[in-house]
Amino acid sequence: MPPDHLRFAARSSDDQRAALFDIVRDSPVLMRTLAGLRALDLPDSWLVSGAIYNQVWNHLTGRPEMHGVKDIDLFYFDADTSYEAEDREIRRAALLFPPEPPVELRNQARVHLWYESHFGQNRAPLPDSRTAIDQFASRTHCVGLRLEADYSLTLHAPYGLDDIFAFRLTPNPCLPNRATHEAKAARQRSCWPELTVVPWPAD
């Protein structure tokens, strides 16, 4: 019999999707964030990554809501790549969301403009927000959600949800992000010791 926190591991994709949606809907912070993002009415907008899978782990291990969540990441994609346009949307978002946990809203059309100065690597322009989600350093982290006008949830999870429900951090070597995968894995293991970390593949 597997540990209770692994009860959705290796289940069907439909079962895992339903479990994820139930956990998200049970989280006041996530639902408030999704509703706020919808109210911003930004193009190609998503709640992404950590706040989603971290809350799944919290729910399944009985930890408090948002335990270990440093910030809540929101993506959108706007062809206006000026700093001023993004800053305007960030300021609009600041009026909607409480300061804790902090919300970070970023236009994915601008990523290639600052990526090299932050990470020391060139980055090709992204075509949309989904591609940005697809390229996170761990496949486990590649997940995004959106709340639609009818209150249904739209999921983008290019590698499925089994890594999340199996408490397994699996690298995503589509970009040379070994250092990011390892750093995030170390921090997350300190918050959720149930996690298994798959090593970055050898060069």
Score class of each variant (00 low, 15 high):
Asn172Val: 08
Val56Ala: 02
Pro64Asn: 06
Ala132Asp: 11
Asp71Met: 02
Phe165Pro: 06
His156Leu: 06
Arg11Lys: 14
Thr140Asp: 00
Ala93Cys: 07
Thr154Gln: 08
His118Gly: 05
Pro102Phe: 03
Asp128Ala: 01
Thr180Phe: 13
Arg91Asn: 15
Asn54Tyr: 08
Pro125Leu: 00
Pro98Cys: 07
Glu84Gln: 08
Val111Tyr: 09
Pro171Lys: 01
Trp46Cys: 00
Arg25Lys: 12
Ser12Asn: 02
Asn58Thr: 02
Gly62Ala: 06
Ser190Lys: 08
Asn54Gln: 15
Ser49Met: 07
Leu42Ser: 05
Val198Leu: 00
Ala35Arg: 12
Ser45His: 08
Arg17Ile: 05
Val111Gln: 11
Pro28Asn: 03
Gln108Ile: 01
Arg32Thr: 09
Thr131Cys: 13
Phe97Lys: 00
Leu96Ala: 09
Leu147Lys: 01
Leu37Ala: 09
Ala94Pro: 13
Glu65Thr: 00
Ile52Val: 07
Arg38Gln: 14
Tyr151Gln: 15
Ala79Ile: 09
Ala18Thr: 10
Asn54His: 14
Leu126Met: 14
Ala39Phe: 04
Gln108Cys: 09
Trp200His: 00
Tyr53His: 04
Pro127Trp: 07
Leu169Trp: 04
Asp4Met: 13
Asp162Ser: 05
Cys142Val: 01
Glu194Phe: 01
Thr33Pro: 11
Arg25Ser: 04
Ser129Glu: 02
Asn54Val: 06
Thr170Phe: 10
Glu84Lys: 01
Ile164Ser: 10
Phe8Glu: 02
Pro176Met: 12
Asp80Arg: 00
Glu104Gln: 05
Ala149Glu: 15
Asp162Gly: 02
Ala166Lys: 01
Gln135Trp: 08
Arg11Val: 10
Pro3Trp: 01
Asn54Cys: 09
Leu30Gln: 11
Tyr151Arg: 12
Ser82Phe: 07
His5Met: 06
Pro3His: 02
Arg189Ser: 14
Pro64Met: 11
Pro98Ser: 11
Asp78Glu: 13
Tyr115Ile: 09
Asp87Phe: 10
Arg17Trp: 11
Ser82Asp: 03
Asp203Arg: 04
Val24Asp: 10
Ser129Ala: 09
Tyr76Val: 02
Leu175Arg: 14
Glu100Gly: 04
Ser13Phe: 05
Met31Thr: 12
Arg17Gln: 15
Ala179Trp: 10
Asp71Ile: 00
Thr33Tyr: 06
Arg63Gly: 11
Glu65Ile: 05
Glu84Tyr: 03
Ser152Ile: 08
Ala94Asn: 03
Val29Ala: 11
Asp87Asn: 14
Leu155Met: 15
Ser152Met: 11
Leu6Tyr: 07
Arg63Asp: 09
Asp87His: 13
Phe119Lys: 03
Ala179Asp: 13
Arg25Pro: 06
Pro102Met: 05
Ala185Ser: 15
Ala157Ile: 00
